[in-house]
Amino acid sequence: MIVTTKAIVISAIKYGDTSLIVKLFTESDGVKSYLLKGVLASKKGKLKKGYFIPLTQLEIVATHKGKGTLESLREVKLSTTFKTLQTDVVKSSIALFLSEMLVVSLQEEEANPALFKYLEKAFIWLDSNGEIANFHISFLIQLTAFLGFYPDDSNIEAPYFDLAEGEFVLSLYNEVMEGATVEVFKQFLNTNFDTSKQIKISRNVRAHLLQQLIRYYQLHLSDFKKPKSLDILQQVFG
């Protein structure tokens, strides 16, 4: 089946000397993987390697066989031209980290229009805004709503957040978020990128909150692997 759809680049892995295997989150079919033969050697082909930098937003024409094998791309063009996301060192570090988080978080080969729209708007916001220190925290918290484990804030006045149960609690049973970290975490709930950038937070607390969020993902997603780029991101903000 030939499909025309928007897509967001999640990852690109070198295959052999001249090819790439790219994973895209498509608007039409969710996560799809494609084999791009010879793309690293070709200078005149329709498929340029520059299109496949993580979080790049594309319009593609693809052949989807739907048999669990690698699909193929016929045509690719940019749907959004980023101005700073891939050139600003802080933003590109955030992009690399978030792309790794998406690789382990997004697995379904089925359409999810609401999630696609969220990702599309989120990365356009990151590209066009300057105050971005809280972006990745806000992004990961909001993303949990689409993954099925958004924090239950019905008991938000409680002093601990139970990472395994995803709710605020009065007593310690499982791993919890507590102290200054949980108080800042509460401020992020039910906010958007514009409001969350106004939250005042120290570097140490932000770093600890990020580590706690990654642990939260680990407890709620099977086969979760800690992003390799986390250390780079912490250095950028440290």
Rank of each mutant, 00 (worst) to 15 (best):
F149M: 01
S33E: 12
D88Y: 12
K43E: 13
L20D: 12
V61S: 13
R203Q: 06
L102V: 11
S19V: 00
G238P: 04
V22E: 10
L40K: 10
L40A: 05
V61K: 15
D29S: 13
A111F: 00
E100Q: 12
L35G: 00
L170K: 15
S138T: 14
L58Q: 12
D152H: 07
A12S: 15
V90H: 09
L143M: 05
I10M: 10
N134Q: 10
Q218M: 00
D194T: 02
E71T: 04
E109A: 03
S93T: 15
I156P: 10
G66Q: 04
G66W: 14
D223C: 01
L85K: 10
I214W: 02
E157A: 11
A164R: 12
S19A: 11
S28M: 05
R74Q: 14
K23Q: 15
L126G: 07
I141D: 05
A133T: 13
L78W: 04
A180N: 14
Y173S: 10
K48D: 13
A7M: 05
A180K: 14
L106R: 04
A41Y: 10
L230C: 03
H220R: 14
K65D: 06
Y150R: 03
A95G: 07
K65C: 05
S11V: 04
T81D: 11
D127C: 09
R206K: 13
E75F: 06
I132Q: 10
L221E: 09
Q211R: 13
K91N: 08
I8G: 06
K200P: 02
E167H: 10
S11I: 08
L219F: 12
F25D: 03
D17Q: 06
H208P: 01
E165Q: 15
E165L: 15
E157K: 14
K226P: 03
G30V: 06
P159F: 00
K32S: 11
S33G: 06
T144H: 04
L96M: 14
F135W: 12
L73C: 04
F188L: 06
L35R: 09
I232R: 08
K226D: 04
Y15D: 04
P159S: 03
D17W: 08
F52N: 02
V3C: 00
T195W: 00
L96H: 02
Y160G: 07
L24Y: 09
T56N: 15
E165W: 01
Y173W: 03
E157G: 09
A158M: 15
S92F: 07
A207L: 11
Y34K: 06
S105Q: 07
T18Y: 10
K46I: 09
F149G: 01
W125H: 09
S229H: 12
V89R: 05
L140Q: 05
K67W: 03
T63V: 14
A158G: 03
V31G: 00
P151A: 01
N112V: 00
A111L: 00
A164Y: 12
N192F: 02
K225P: 01
N174A: 12
V90C: 09
T81I: 14
G16L: 11
S42T: 14
L58R: 11
Q212F: 05
H64G: 02
Q142R: 15
T56Y: 02
